[in-house]
Nucleic acid binder design. Structure first.
Length: 511
RNA sequence: GGCCCGUUCGUCUAGGGGUUAGGACGCGUCCCUUUCACGGACGAAACACGGGUUCGAUUCCCGUACGGGCUACCA
């Protein structure tokens, strides 16, 4: 048990797009597996036929790939020794029924024939009787139609007649259940709080409760990490392991804190990410055709996305925040995961992307930026674009801001900032620009230092304070009032283009 | 309602019986820059409350409050 090979799984159900909370669970599993040289498995928990969403499985796989947290075993990543990894397919093999039968034989599970209506009535009755927690349990089961209340003959007759039934876990009435959680320590719950969970549904499919246990055991999972929302049902799971005689095979449990809404309260939901995406990739829901933009399409780097997610509930113990995937693998440990839920912080998420943007080389940025330039009808050499990126990147959080921040590096501005013109354009400054153009035209080198010196000399010669014309000159060249160092811009676009822009301006604003 | 889990600056968090309670995001001021940004400096900003235990609790225990989760033939 102690030296068991580390094998963890991410086991989503294909009921929609994988959201960032799910990605984080996958990430923690991935990091833990890699840290210990173990296996990371993708298992698809598609036992609910009614909630199946076409395309969800593929979306999950693509998301994990984009995030760079790929499983090494399971659906979409090469089947391993425990195939199949889709629960619907495992069900066809009779795997779950076998375990359910074993529980029945051991007297720890039973057949229940109650219809939905009968169950509703029971709940209503109990509510009317002011029962604190209406549930199918050791007490209420005595008034229901199941193999515990019916005679053996009746049960056989119903079964033979093909009457729909479920198999329920027979939870003892009053017994203390304790279990150890890596993150939370010992948790104690009385079995009176646990209901007789359905293990096998009337359509023959197992529920999550049965299926995940059977699969975790058969797939030799060593550690089960999942969201905190599973904590209340963990006692029932402990019972199932026990009644199956599999307590020794039980993975160690770790219930992860949830990601909470940035403001307001509650679990993070699709609507409450304050303008940032909920999903890693664009997701279109086939059920209602609603669509959501992804982090990828919003211009986030996967490294930044992952880095942000991992620090929601975990930290390396020092003040380090920007960590590569390799560093994360190195540093990761379950013991340093917090107990409390973490509110999602959109502002800091953007900051993470900015940090990664800065780390990229100008060439890498050029590769990302060039397709965007093409959309604006700009064709430029990679060398030129890389130089442009060098100037722009300090001001951006995302590559998709580059165009807005530096379009004037690629095309002659068609208009000039009106506010600056209003304030700075007059006969004297106009004459200065004219004179400056002549001086710049004589320059043999257009290196930033040369043009800057030329600007200063011209200002001195004409007796005008540089501050009076600097901003105007910037607008002449770029059209806008803010941007990278002006002389760097001119060096990049070159003498010919710079002079051209000055001519254009002088012509357009003739006094 | 019941059960379970939690609670350090607005947010993510470090720390842990004796600290000027540390860092980051965001915010503010200043410096750099004849722009914006980057960078730098500085600043405002937290141990939910009440009882214990203790020479001493933010740290340990118990309550309370607040927050979150669960309460399906969903996962």
């Amino acid at each position: 048990m102690e030296n068991k090979r580390v094998r963890v799984r991410f086991a989503p159900s294909p009921t929609g797009g994988l959201h960032m909370g799910g990605v984080r669970v996958a990430l923690f599993n991935y990091l833990f597996a890699k840290k210990h040289g173990g296996d990371f498995i993708l298992r698809i928990e598609d036992t609910d036929q009614t909630r199946f969403v076409a395309g969800a499985e593929e979306y999950i796989i693509n998301s994990l790939k984009w995030c760079g947290i790929e499983p090494n075993e399971g659906v979409g990543f090469g089947d391993g020794p425990h195939a199949p990894y889709r629960q619907s397919e495992r069900k066809e093999l009779g795997i779950y029924k076998k375990y359910a039968d074993k529980l029945i034989e051991g007297g720890h599970a039973y057949y229940a024939f109650d219809t939905t209506e009968e169950l509703d009535e029971m709940r209503k009755r109990m509510e009317a009787a002011k029962v604190a927690a209406p549930q199918y349990n050791a007490v209420s089961r005595q008034n229901m139609r199941n193999s515990l209340t019916l005679s053996e003959d009746e049960v056989k007759k119903l079964l033979d007649a093909g009457t729909p039934y479920v198999i329920r876990l027979k939870v003892p009435r009053n017994e203390e259940i304790r279990f150890h959680d890596i993150i939370r320590g010992w948790v104690v719950v009385n079995s009176s709080q646990v209901d007789d969970k359905v293990l096998l549904k009337s359509d023959g499919m197992p529920t999550y409760h049965l299926a995940h246990i059977v699969d975790d055991v058969e797939m030799k999972i060593s550690h089960a990490m999942r969201g905190e929302e599973w904590l209340p049902s963990a006692p029932a799971h402990i019972l199932i392991y026990r009644y199956l005689g599999l307590e020794a095979e039980m993975p160690q449990l770790a219930h992860l804190p949830l990601i909470l809404k940035p403001d307001g309260h509650g679990k993070l939901s699709k609507r409450d990410t304050s303008g940032l995406p909920m999903f890693p990739l664009n997701w279109q829901d086939p059920r209602d055709n609603s669509s959501y933009v992804g982090y990828k399409e919003s211009g986030f780097f996967p490294e930044a996305f992952i880095n942000m997610l991992v620090l929601l509930g975990w930290n390396p113990g020092d003040n380090k925040e920007i960590m590569s995937k390799d560093e994360l693998i190195q540093l990761f440990s379950l013991e340093r995961i917090n107990k409390a839920g973490a509110k999602f912080d959109p502002e800091k998420t953007k900051w993470f992307n900015q940090q990664y943007l800065r780390k990229k080389t100008d060439e890498e940025l050029a590769d990302i930026f060039m397709p965007m330039l093409k959309e604006h009808g700009v064709e430029a050499s990679k060398d030129f674009v890389a130089k442009a990126c060098k100037l722009i990147k300090e001001k951006a959080h995302f590559v998709n801001e580059f165009w807005l921040l530096g379009f004037f590096l690629f095309e002659t501005p068609s208009s000039h900032d009106a506010a600056v013109l209003e304030k700075r354009l007059n006969a004297q400054s106009y004459a200065f620009i004219e004179e400056l153009k002549n001086e710049l035209s004589d320059l043999s080198s257009f290196a930033a230092a040369e043009t800057e010196a030329c600007f200063k000399a011209t200002a001195e010669k004409t007796g005008i304070a540089p501050g009076q014309v600097m901003q105007l000159f910037r607008v002449v060249i770029t059209g806008v009032s803010g941007g990278p160092a002006l002389y760097e811009i001119m060096e990049l676009i070159g003498k010919e283009e710079s002079i051209k822009r000055m001519d254009f301006f002088l012509e357009k604003n003739k006094i």
